[in-house]
Design a binder for these strands. Structure first.
Lengths: 199, 199
DNA sequence: TCTCGAAGTGAAACGTGTTCCTATTATGTC
DNA sequence: GACATAATAGGAACACGTTTCACTTCGAGA
């Protein structure tokens, strides 16, 4: 099925393979967390995951695929945690801001990791479109859920709004990662944008 | 003055140096336009600009600086052209959409070039913050001017709004470049976002 | 004009992502 | 258990961004 794409855990037969895949992603996150994008070196990932370089490339066709997939996994986990807690806030805007603030703070707590994942996400080309799309969907779902808690039905308008907010959030994150804005400015900018859009 | 940054044309003494710099940027744009980010290889740029590799690196400390600077130059030119023409449209939203559509169409007419410049912009790290900031300012000015034609005084709110729109535009561009959305979807998304924000 | 320092040249070398190849080890089938 | 096939290991090799260095050329001041 997937020739140019990363192997998903579902299409991995044996449990040994699933474990290998997890080890690789763990090593990726660990290295990224420690030294950012540059520290995620394919040889280092392979060694830390106790896997040959060729095997690493069999599981993930490029560094970008690897990082974007790792990003997706982290995102899924974060979303699961978020989904359990009710989101405080009376209005859509308040809830969205709460979610974004929480997520952003989480990311800013690990700048190197955020650097690696953001850069990978932005640098990805067509070949990683599938993985990127998965992350985008997660983000959109997270936001629409904050906008309408408990409601799974969302309108096209809501999705469009969530996308716009997601866009701003990503740009703000990039600006922060590249040192163009501080954490406070990032938060303020995002809050302003949300209040502008959701009113 | 600038040790880690690209040499700006102002701080270049001789005209021979200014010409070298222009040749380098021309070669960059030509290669990018022909084959995108990957085709902008430093050796190829040096050769096409008829300059030694070491010289290229003296003018631009990295491929990213080179591309972002080239992007800034293209942007300045585009903005000059835009500035001469009055912008059609009765409302702020209409005018902003006109500008964005025009600019986007221009970019989409040269997908490879857009690929190269967008990826460089998004991938840039702290060391290119200055060049990135220059592009951001240009973009913001372009948008505020579309919002309030003929008025040079803009409020903080206007700048914030322009930033948000710029964020969305960049994200949309990235999505288009990475093949996640078509040109039509990109245009529609942008228009929707602008009408959402400017109302 | 001569001299000196800065700028440019040309080429080698290094680091890291990626590819490729052969030997070895698992895994499933008869 | 023996075999066929796929997966993995281990490592060399290649591409391109980047650095380095020895040498040459240029340009401004004595």
């Amino acid at each position: 099925m997937s020739s140019t794409n990363a192997l998903t855990s579902e299409e991995l037969g044996s449990s040994a393979q699933r474990e290998r895949r997890e080890r690789i992603l763990d090593a990726t996150i660990a290295l990224a967390s420690q030294g950012g994008f540059d520290a995620v070196q394919m040889r280092a990932v392979a060694e830390q995951a106790d896997v040959a370089l060729g095997t690493l490339y069999r599981y993930f066709p490029s560094k970008i695929h690897l990082l974007v997939t790792a990003l997706a996994r982290e995102f899924e986990r974060a979303e699961k945690v978020l989904a359990t807690r009710a989101i405080s806030g009376d209005t859509s805007a308040d809830r969205v801001i709460t979610v974004l603030r929480r997520t952003t703070r989480g990311l800013q707590g690990d700048p190197h990791l955020t650097d690696a994942l953001t850069r990978a996400f932005m640098f990805a080309d067509k070949s990683a479109a599938q993985e990127i799309h998965a992350v985008g969907m997660l983000l959109t779902r997270m936001l629409t859920r904050a906008m309408h808690p408990g409601i799974d039905e969302v309108s096209d308008d809501d999705i469009a709004i969530a996308r716009v907010i997601g866009d701003v959030w990503l740009s703000a994150l990039v600006a922060w990662v590249t040192g163009r804005s501080t954490a406070e400015e990032t938060a303020a900018h995002m809050e302003r944008a949300v209040r502008l859009i959701l009113r």
